[in-house]
Design a protein around this nucleic acid. Sequence first.
DNA 1: TCTGGGGTCCTAGGACCC
DNA 2: TCTGGGGTCCTAGGACCC
Length: 406
Amino acid sequence: MEKQILHVDVNNAFLSWTAVEMLKQGSEIDIRQIPAIIGGDESKRSGIVLAKSMKAKECGVKTADTIYQARIKCPNLKIFPSNFPIYRKYSNQLYQLLLEYTDKIERFSIDECFLDMTNYLRNDTLLNKGYEINRRVREELGFTVNVGVANNKLLAKMASDFTKPDRVHTLWKEEIPEKMWTLPVSELFMLGKKTVPKLYNMQIKTIGDLAKTDKTKLEKKFGKHGTLMWEYANGIDTSEVKYLPEKPKCIGNSVTLPKNISDMDKLEEIVLTISEQVAYRLRKEKLYANTVNVQLRTKNFEDTSHQKKLPEATDTTKQIYMTAKELLHEMYRKGQEIRLVGVRVDNLTDKKDEQISLFNTNKNEKQEKLDKVIDQLKNKYGYNSVTRATKMDVDDLVKFKKEEYK
DNA sequence: TCTGGGGTCCTAGGACCC
DNA sequence: TCTGGGGTCCTAGGACCC
């Protein structure tokens, strides 16, 4: 039996949610009705467009434009900051509503869900359920969604991306030639800005062109990605809706610095701050890291990353920081002006492989206890309740933090 | 003109072992 | 002296997504 899949996609999510929240706070204006964007902070050098209203879109403003560009395209643009706690709140409201239809829901991102409605339709049709969800979200939650209706995830996702906003679209197998093959190849999921020009050079311009291209030829040129794009172009996707929560495969944080930095002391301090965040999140997930990765971006946008496998899995701030610091020194070239610093942990495992020893000589016991105390304080009083006065050697830091909480 | 931050998956090459 | 393949693990980087 064919799968019955819905894809629910919030229209201009960050902007719509901000609008709903503002109205709730008594705002006179609905920022969905004016040229407006949600953007980063230019003074912090993170000035890009995260979401746009329809009016801003009509001016030509695109997601990921710089705010500078957006203002040129649209001089009377209103700009609002992002607020992730609010986005999470509305994302959860949506999820709760969708749970009334099926418990097989994959939260694909903060503003997108796949629903596996197979065996949950009773006497209704999939399309009717799509319309009902579309209406209920608008009426009960105050924002709008597009709903894609199809027999697999890929087609449902493509369908929800047709005309917007507040629409329900089907993409059944027999509709593929008319509704999907006519689209430019850049519209196909998983075809990005690197691949599209290569396809253009091969005279492949529409999704239909791609579908009719010899599969082997694509595989020769693009490897596994070639197989995938050919299958997607032909509407083939056998993947399941992943409704069970999964543990993350990696955890990382990065910052674009307010100013470029060439000073190693400062870079170390930043790496320490980020390592603390990453290690905190790692412990919160009850996971252990086997690999530490450091990323640097220079002022010219040259990215490099180095990584190191650890002798044993860890979740301590100290171990992660010490490794990250080592990597930082290994990769930093004198005189480089650094724009962004990132720390990431990879190869995460559930359980630390405890060393089998007759003596209980856990040399990290001290660190682990300290981390635990700090985590409890952060959980209780907020992440920033526990901060360093200044950068210092990690052993001093350990001592310092101990004194602090006696 | 000035370009975020969080992820996942894949590939290619080198080291090392048999 | 000059020379195999096959396999695994690790690392650096790239492509894509929202």
